[in-house]
Write a protein that binds this DNA or RNA. Structure first.
Lengths: 306, 306
DNA sequence: TATCCTTACGGAATTCGTAAGCATG
DNA sequence: CATGCTTACGAATTCCGTAAGGATA
């Protein structure tokens, strides 16, 4: 048994049991992958994969549990490397953040700037994706920390924490008729075509819930993944925009105005932070978390093994 | 990084950092051990061991945490092997029980017999030792299940469960004067020289506590590790015996009699069962636990990852 | 027919073990 | 001076990758 074999198994599961792909991903030959996996099966005395002829078509029942253990072993070896790298160069290394556009564009810059000042020798890598992709990146260990406004615990082995709450705001181009009827209510807004986030993005669920509870069926003229796109179309008069309050900067430059409403119209949303269960995080990662959501790093996270 | 290197590191810690011994234990050469450990240190970029000249004299601060992770990795690989062996031959394999003499001699035979009938293809290995040795065997992974009447959680990573309670009994040779004064109290017994267990064995703490609470300072003429030895000396008239109730079988043959007392004189003791935290136990091991302490295997243990 | 796993086999890289060197207590 | 780690170097083993073979959709 060796680590290479375990890596092949893990990657086989991740790549739809296609050993050719596995070889490509790990920069090696198919034959090697095939042989090593078979060797491991021989050593363990069980078949991990179901083969129909010469094709892997599934994971056996025994393989199912084995893969779990394999992943734990590999996770711990990664932990060992990270742990060691903490000592080799103190406060140096790499930190991979996976985030949605909203976070990367509006909430993270402040934190990234501060972190970069405190830890100039840490390379920050910012990966962007949908909330679901963020969760998967955490789950696979491709990202150390994931940040999104949606649930992050739909992927396995992801532990999610609540960071802070925020609300949506309504924006329109200067001179829009809505501005004459403030404070505006939900019904006022629903009278216009709307431009807001895609489903499952940046608290869109809260927006939908608010309208449906008020018995309103608004005209969603356009939905997009991020506030920059939304604001662009709002400026061009496509409709009334509903965006996260974090995205309200530079409105003047864009010729947009926030509509005064009767308190928060849409329920408050929460931004979540996710880390992989059982993964070692170097101290600077904890500091990053602390900068993003003060108190989280020391309180909840500290009670865990890592 | 490979498993051999990790094994060398673990064994080095276990064998007082003596690489020569490590090589002997693992049936290989010192030079290999030395080189591999150094290679691992190079790869991780940190020194795991403190060297004074050409001698390992300690574990570095970084090494301390690294060794913990190394042990977790190796534990999981053992788990993988065990897990697999469950499928290769169903209900076959090896089960190592570490127990004190009292358990091995009096409480386990019934269980072993039943287990052997149900799982004839499982090789049972019974290791005997002091309570402390039992705990260490569990902690090191040298035993799957440990059973003792004393605390088992003084060794690291050992999870202990309460199995059942029992009391001590007083035994004397037939015709002993104590038999004429029943039911006997603590003071009556303390009037005679006593023969009982060594310190830290088979609930000896309860015996001491009972006497000291009653303000008595009995004459402990002889203490021994097990009831067989104790009974031998009691039969020869050395003193009054105090043994676990489990050890009361075959008294007639030995010419011994249980002294009728005024209820249990010594507080009730508990027999503990210990397993290593994070270690995979095959299903037959869980069945063994269930046979020994019905309800334990399904209730408390089932709630754990393994 | 295109994709994809297995097997064979020669070459590359690791690992192992003997032996010698050297530091410590 | 006995013990014990390191280094060197040749031998053995393991691992890797090309190429050919066979199976599936």
């Amino acid at each position: 048994m060796n680590f290479q074999q375990l890596r092949y198994v893990r990657e086989a599961v991740r790549n739809n049991l296609n050993l050719t792909e596995v070889a490509a991903v790990l920069y090696t030959s198919q034959s090697g992958v095939s042989k090593q996996i078979k060797d491991l099966e021989d050593e363990l005395g069980i078949e991990l994969f179901v083969r129909s002829g010469k094709r892997l078509t599934g994971v056996t029942r025994a393989g199912d549990g084995a893969v779990e253990i394999v992943q734990r072993i590999l996770m711990e070896t990664e932990n060992l490397r990270r742990y060691a790298s903490q000592y080799v160069g103190v406060d140096s290394g790499r930190l991979v953040i996976a985030a949605t556009h909203t976070q990367a564009r509006y909430t993270l810059p402040r934190v990234v700037e501060e972190f970069n000042r405190v830890f100039p020798k840490v390379t920050l890598e910012l990966h962007q994706g949908t909330p679901r992709q963020v969760a998967i990146m955490i789950s696979n260990g491709d990202a150390d920390i994931g940040i999104a406004s949606e649930a992050l615990n739909d992927a396995p082995a992801v532990r999610a924490y609540t960071c802070f709450s925020w609300n949506h705001q309504v924006v329109v181009p200067a001179g829009h008729p809505l501005l004459g009827r403030t404070p505006a209510g939900l019904a006022d807004i629903a009278a216009y075509p709307l431009v807001t986030y895609n489903e499952d993005f940046t608290g869109r669920k809260c927006v939908d819930a608010a309208f449906s509870q008020a018995g309103l069926a608004p005209d969603l003229r356009l939905t997009a993944m991020d506030a920059d796109v939304i604001k662009t179309y709002v400026r061009r008069g496509l409709g009334v925009g509903i965006v996260a309050e974090m995205a309200l900067e530079d409105l003047d430059r864009d010729g947009l105005v926030v509509v005064d409403t009767d308190g928060p119209l849409f329920g408050s949303c929460t931004t979540m932070l996710g880390v992989r269960d059982g993964t070692f995080l170097p101290s600077f990662a904890h500091r990053f978390i602390d900068m993003f959501a003060p108190g989280l790093g020391t309180d909840q996270l500290a009670s865990r093994p890592y």
